[in-house]
Design a protein around this nucleic acid. Structure first.
Lengths: 165, 165
DNA sequence: TATTGTTATACTCTATAACTATA
DNA sequence: TATAGTTATAGAGTATAACAATA
């Protein structure tokens, strides 16, 4: 028996349900836009975007996996797809022979550019149409600490201590 | 060319990224808890929860599909799994012979009860640990209109007007 | 003719375990 | 021994199109 009988008050339930629904609906629309506009899944888009943001256009596999919530094998699969499509390259890292450095190609940047306006548009229409600048600030202020909290608590691709199934 | 060149200001980007990350991390953990505790996917949990909340314990397939963001065939698949597991029953609707009424069984309610405490616990720890009651109110107040807006804009399982691919 | 739901099918994605290679 | 990544494989989930039945 847990010490505190777990429960959520109505306000928490409301916030939780709204969050789930909003993110689910948003994700669904975004996914569709990315597929239509550039034949990318959201995960693939995230990977490309992450690489595109990086100053060098490169990142190690592990860092990508940590960033995008992934099993290593899942990342290998996605990286393979992106490489096959010519959007990234993979090469052994300079300093650590075990590591693989993933680098976005020009084609990858083009694809990103091709998809981005529509992506922004969807997010703008679905999410920000009804949020004032003040609301946006407030939302970011609320969710950023949550994000940091979630990130700090459980390791991601790290050591699988306890795992069943 | 769109009238407004689409773009997001830094605050919007921050809010968007935080939202995506938070919901992704939360979903991931919840998914795992539900699987471990009661061998349910999140979608299956949502379906059961929706039925459990309903006064009659029943809902039509279409209503479920609209609620949980689903293609009808996807819902048929999930309903089939739930039925096979004895957690719901399906029967032709009384008033409309075309419709199928899905009803949660006692076993379904038990499963829900079995899974719920752990579910709440995860949400509590991951999401609400760092949010004050005031924050929770604010978050709900921000996201609820967004949800309504998203719901009102595009039809869900409704008429597939324009669709490519 | 429109709506409700199912089926068949094909595909994408994800995870687990076993394995290789480097630190 | 621990870490980085890949492979094989198996399973879950999703969507599309064609279909049957009722409104």
């Amino acid at each position: 028996m847990p010490d505190t009988p777990p429960s959520l008050d109505p306000a928490q339930l409301g916030a939780y349900f709204a969050l789930v629904e909003v993110s689910s609906l948003l994700r669904h629309q975004v996914e569709q836009q990315l597929r239509d506009a550039g034949d990318l899944s959201f995960v693939q888009f995230q990977l490309l975007a992450r690489l595109g943001d990086s100053p060098t256009g490169s990142q190690r596999m592990t860092d990508l996996a940590d960033g995008v919530v992934y099993s290593r094998s899942g990342l290998t699969y996605q990286a393979g797809l992106l490489e096959k499509a010519g959007l990234v390259t993979r090469s052994p890292s300079a300093d650590d022979e075990r590591s693989v450095t993933v680098t976005i190609t020009d084609a990858g940047r083009e694809r990103l550019a091709k998809v981005f306006p529509g992506h922004i548009e969807v997010v703008q229409q679905l999410l920000f149409e009804v949020l004032s600048p003040r609301d946006v600030q407030a939302l970011a202020a609320l969710l950023t600490p949550v994000r940091d909290h979630m990130r700090s608590t459980p390791p991601r691709s790290a050591a699988p201590r306890r795992r069943r199934r």
